[in-house]
């Protein structure tokens, strides 16, 4: 179509350029064009958070962001958080504390949790629960997700202290 826009994104440290219709959603571009299928589509109304990514330092629901709005943005998806040999502390913690079951919400949940711990490195349980209230999980009842995030916070803080 003639009305395509030229979009530049930096995703997980890599630059990408492509053409997109103005109505194209960020989640669509990530999943279909960049083959980053970690973020998922759960509701398309910003409620479930399965599509959560970090955009310019903020958690966003990529199912309701136009990719044109993201032009020039730095984006982190679950694929950018850790690598097979060096998992992010949260990825380890979710495994250790059984913070996931079907895994569909997990990429969005961990991406959100990582941002949450950056914003608030020492959250209370209530702050964690409030901080992830935009991410729905149908399997775990959240108890072990909260446990995982609190454990990761403790570990990250200990690592920070050791580094100082």
């Amino acid at each position: 179509m003639s009305n395509k826009m030229h979009v530049k994104l930096n995703v997980n440290g890599e630059d990408h350029e492509f053409l997109a219709e103005p109505r194209e959603l960020l989640i669509y571009a990530l999943r279909e064009k960049l083959n980053l299928t970690g973020p998922h589509v759960g509701c398309e109304t910003s409620h479930c958070g399965a599509c959560t990514v970090t955009m310019n330092g903020k958690s966003v629901k990529s199912c309701t962001v136009f990719v044109a709005q993201a032009d020039g943005a730095e984006i982190t998806t679950i694929e950018g958080l850790g690598s097979p040999g060096a998992l992010h502390v949260l990825q380890e913690a979710f495994k250790e504390h059984h913070g996931l079951q079907c895994g569909f919400c997990t990429p969005g949940m961990i991406t959100r949790a990582a941002k949450l711990l950056e914003e608030n490195p020492n959250p209370t349980e209530a702050e964690v629960r409030f901080g992830i209230a935009g991410n729905i999980c149908r399997c775990t009842g959240y108890q072990n997700i909260v446990k995982s995030i609190l454990a990761a916070a403790t570990e990250l803080n200990a690592a920070k202290e050791a580094a100082q």
């Binding site: 999943r31 083959n35 980053l36 299928t37 970690g38 973020p39 998922h40 589509v41 998806t77 679950i78 694929e79 850790g82 097979p84 998992l87 949260l90 990825q91 979710f94 495994k95 250790e96 059984h98 996931l100 079907c102 895994g103 569909f104 997990t106 990429p107 961990i110």
Partner: peptide, 21 residues
């Protein structure tokens, strides 16, 4: 026992039907 499924799910490497191309 910790779950063997978690390695792929926590890294966004699950393979759900919408991921199939």
């Amino acid at each position: 026992r910790k779950r063997v499924e978690d390695a792929r799910f926590t890294q966004g490497k699950g393979n759900y039907v919408d991921d199939i191309k």
